[in-house]
């Protein structure tokens, strides 16, 4: 009997996609480096392999300081947004749920806006407070959503949480718009470009900043993948299988929110990845989270690196905001897949 467990071939295809995208993005940038040059430039930073490589210091700096951190950050942020999106869709039994559902986006947006408007010199400080402010804003807004959702309704009912999320998002967005409206044109532009998302300023410090959060979140979500399927039969039946649905929901929401907040704090609000990637996987690999969740991590990372490649090349030397690329590319492609697929979402 064929059960839709994750099979080795699924991981193999996804891994080929990710490796292909990474090699492509690393070697086809404006610098026109060969695959070998890129490998050598990366190799000198790895133990054991790089001893005999000879790379010019300019190429090495270009690859190691600019290209690689940006690709690594793209992988982490994409993996995080896609898997968190899949997790939210499973928890709320709603195909339209995305990682920003419970107020992460508006909270992070407000945090970033406050820094950009009130601390305009902050970006040149040795410690950049913007990611921290965005992260705190995101966490505070989700905690408020939980407090309000629990006060407003039954804890076991996910819809009161959803409605609380909408109210908190509206409130935070209102405050942010008010602050923006009282600031200068340049500041508005800064806020706006942060909101559209970008990996342009990525450095290794960003990667190491969010790596622990992403690893922790991804581990928790992967271990919960079966239970996401169980949630679809409702709380009472889930109990009869030995699953405490409310506890599972809280763990998944907490993990997905923490990871999303970390991703958003360094990349801004990159939209659409959290919806499009899980749904594409659903169309290809079926509706079970046993497959959707692990594959979202891989394909999400690859998808965002690809989108970021386009963001920095289509109007080179100018950068297009990443959120514009993900939506501009993702939406039509998604529609084509939807129309040609026989499965319903």
């Amino acid at each position: 009997m064929e059960v839709t467990d994750l099979k080795t071939r699924h991981i193999l295809y996804a891994a080929i996609f990710v490796v292909g995208v990474v090699v492509f993005a690393a070697t086809t940038g404006p610098a026109q480096l060969s695959v070998l040059q890129v490998f050598q430039a990366v190799g000198v930073h790895l133990p054991f392999v790089g001893k005999d490589f000879h790379v010019s210091s300019l190429d090495e700096a270009l690859v190691w300081q600019l290209v690689m951190p940006r690709i690594c950050l793209g992988l982490l942020v994409g993996a995080m947004l896609a898997s968190a999106g899949a997790a939210y869709q499973g928890v709320f039994l709603n195909p339209l749920a995305d990682p920003y559902l419970l107020g992460v986006a508006s909270g992070a947006g407000l945090g970033a806006t406050i820094v950009l408007i009130f601390l305009p010199t902050a970006l040149s400080w040795s410690f950049n407070p913007l990611p921290l402010a965005a992260f705190l804003g995101a966490i505070v807004s989700v905690l408020l959503t939980f407090a309000l959702g629990k006060a407003a309704g039954n804890v076991r009912n996910a819809s009161s949480l959803l409605l609380a999320g909408i109210a908190i998002a509206a409130f935070f967005t209102a405050v942010q718009t008010f602050l923006q409206q009282r600031s200068s044109v340049g500041q508005i532009q800064d806020v706006y470009s942060w909101i559209l998302g970008s990996l342009a300023t990525a450095g290794w410090s960003d990667v190491t900043l969010i790596l622990p959060y992403v690893v922790l979140t991804v581990l928790i979500l992967v271990s919960m993948r079966r239970l996401l399927d169980v949630l679809a039969v409702g709380d009472i039946e889930a109990q009869s299988f030995g699953v405490k649905a409310s506890t599972v929901r809280n763990i998944i929401i907490a993990a997905a929110t923490l990871g999303t907040a970390a991703a958003v704090s360094v990349s801004g609000l990159i939209g659409f990845v959290g919806i499009i990637v899980p749904h594409m996987i659903r169309l290809i690999a079926g509706p079970s989270y046993k497959r959707i969740l692990p594959l979202s991590i891989l394909y999400g990372g690859g998808f965002l690196v690809l989108a970021d490649y386009l963001a920095r090349t289509v109007l080179y030397p100018e950068e297009v905001p990443l959120g514009v690329i993900t939506a501009f590319l993702g939406a039509p492609f998604f529609l084509v897949v939807l129309r040609t697929s026989k499965r319903l979402v």
Partner: peptide, 22 residues
């Protein structure tokens, strides 16, 4: 249950496998 929640998209094989969750 009298009226089980039926996840319409789930495969029958996966649904039966839910019984093994514990």
């Amino acid at each position: 249950p009298q009226r089980p929640n039926i996840p319409k998209q789930m495969l029958v094989a996966d649904y039966v496998m839910l019984g093994r969750t514990a």
